[in-house]
Design a binder for these strands. Structure first.
Lengths: 340, 340
DNA sequence: AAATGCAACGCAAACGTTTTCGGAGTTTAT
DNA sequence: ATAAACTCCGAAAACGTTTGCGTTGCATTT
């Protein structure tokens, strides 16, 4: 039972190809009787239309691309899961690409998406991405992009984010209320919008509470886990170590846990830790980890919903729009007040 | 700058479409001079070939599908990541589908993959999947499938698994060596090959050590987290509770941690826990979790490698082949020997 | 001078659809 | 009875490629 085409159906039924095609699409031009015959034969022979032939005619692929900077990451996975659910409902297909936090890969992949392979793109930027020509080119060629989390402000389109500034502000205040005065901020990138917003929220909270900290309290980390580990360990073993760490992303908090263990620094007695995270095991950690949890699944679902809404129009140019969802601060033991 | 086709290039260069096409593919039929002119123009106008036109001609899409029963799952994500890396190297594209542990979805998605959308499939079965007609049909229609982890023995093709029997055997012996005599096994499915192998390994170890346990020590769990939680809590609060739990999958171990906390059962003093898991935070849990960790990334990469090897042949019929990778037992505190 | 060879290019078919248009046959209206 | 309208279907173009083959012009060989 090899592939069966319209032509095959037409031949066995002794009608024309166009009749078969119309019958399958319930055209009014076809009599009920032949329609039934065609349908039956299609079922019998296991006919499935060749998607690419249709794509070629319609300039629609019913496929979107999903670009993320990291795959083994709870946040992105949940977002992907959300987008996938919406796509499955709408009979869309999802091509997935890992940009590995590399601008060069992002550019290359976006380039390959040019000519009709996908109808639209959902993406989160690389931590290296500082210029947006490749993205603008794609949009110019008629393929809309919806951003989530790591967005490009400069591009006019729909962007799904969370209240990063407020969350970071609240998170920092949470630390201050629990007795911290020397809070280090672990940053991932200088070019990323979310990183900057979180940084600003952190600084604004310090400012409100008249805490003057040296610029070195903002520690710039990288993709490399091992490097981050030693960087954080040095921070914790320095002359004057911070009494709290605000990790801008989950993996930096995990590195902090490991580094603290190595350095003999107790959490939360010696060091309180909070971070943005979608870790399911946060309540089970030792100690349980205080997190700011983003609605990752909803962000992905929302991004897909917005994209599909526009894709169903004839000329899909997405309006500039900022959709901001709320994150949730979940206090746990890593920021628990201690006697000393 | 809208989409530019071969025809557009031909028109601006005042040559025929076929000349342009051949020039771009470095045909010997084209002079070096025109070849350069064409290349330059293509670069200038940002020409990218329409992938679907090519697919239509060649019956090759350079695309594969990846079906997993769950997305928010560390094992599957790492496997996906491995497959994606290999695919990106080879310029293949990956369509991703979540079957949500539902046979019906699996069947439907497989059905839609019939006519040329993909060149091949990499998948892990649903816990509900007990019949394989849909998969056989797909293979009959010329689209090869490579299984990983949750495989279908009945289908002749390449299958990537881990040494589930041995790992479960060793894991159970590990528990026995650490003083456990009443070990419960949390199972996920009766139809899944890996679940059965793990169960057999568990039973064989019990047998070797002359431990006779009632059949009720094998607890059949489900997809529903809440249900599992109460099921496990009841197990722990029963008259005579087990002194160890062997969770066949990660999420059942996490439910066990939660249930133990609810029931006031201490790990590892009252209950030792081991499980198959790819959790990055296993060392950071309270207590740290003893795991049998599968080489998930390598499994995905391996599956992709095997698939691509066959796809490059003319008639891709995959030989029956069992590729078995080794899992690693990593002892941690959840199975630590305690005084009492 | 005629025949042959070769280099460089264009024609056209094909992949599997969808859709416009026209045509044949039948029914309805005048 | 003739014209008009309607029903049902087929022919063919188009989407953007690739490729076998034919064609042209020129140089080389006899």
């Amino acid at each position: 039972m090899s592939k069966v085409s319209l032509r095959d159906l037409a031949k066995t039924l002794d009608v024309s190809i166009s009749t078969v095609s119309k019958a399958l699409r319930n055209s009014y031009e076809i009599s009920a009787e032949t329609r039934e015959r065609v349908m039956e034969a299609a079922r019998q022979l296991g006919y499935h239309p060749n998607p690419y032939a249709g794509s070629l005619r319609h300039h629609k692929s019913k496929t979107i691309a999903l670009l993320v900077p990291e795959l083994t990451n709870n946040f992105f996975i949940q977002a992907i899961s959300g987008a996938e659910s919406v796509a499955q409902e709408r009979d869309y297909h999802i091509l997935i690409y890992n940009t590995h936090e590399q601008y060069q890969k992002e550019e290359s992949i976006i380039g390959h998406l040019g000519n009709g392979r996908v109808d639209g793109v959902i993406m989160s930027l690389t931590s290296e991405t500082g210029r947006y020509d490749h993205l603008n080119d794609l949009i110019q060629s008629g393929i809309p992009i919806v951003f989530f989390d790591r967005i490009a402000h400069e591009i006019e389109t729909a962007k799904i984010t969370t209240d990063d500034f407020t969350s970071a502000f609240n998170g920092t205040e949470h630390l201050i209320r629990h007795g911290c005065r020397d809070i280090a901020f672990l940053s991932l990138s200088d070019s990323l919008s979310i990183d900057n917003k979180r940084k600003q929220g952190y600084l604004e909270a310090l400012n409100k509470h008249d805490l003057n900290l040296p610029a070195s309290r903002i520690v710039r980390c990288e993709g490399d886990d091992a490097g981050n580990h030693t960087r954080i360990r040095e921070l914790l073993q320095a002359e004057k170590r911070p009494d709290a760490i605000f990790a801008s992303v989950e993996k930096l908090a995990l590195s902090t846990y490991n580094a603290a263990r190595d350095a003999g620094v107790r959490i939360p007695e010696d060091l309180k830790v909070i971070c943005f995270s979608n870790l399911r095991t946060a309540p089970l950690l030792n100690p349980s980890l205080t997190t700011i949890t983003q609605p990752a699944y909803q962000m992905g679902a929302q991004a897909a919903t917005v994209l599909f809404k526009y894709l169903e129009k004839k000329r899909p140019v997405i309006q500039n729009e900022n959709i901001i969802l709320k994150s949730e601060l979940i206090p746990r033991d890593s920021t628990r007040k201690t006697s000393n």
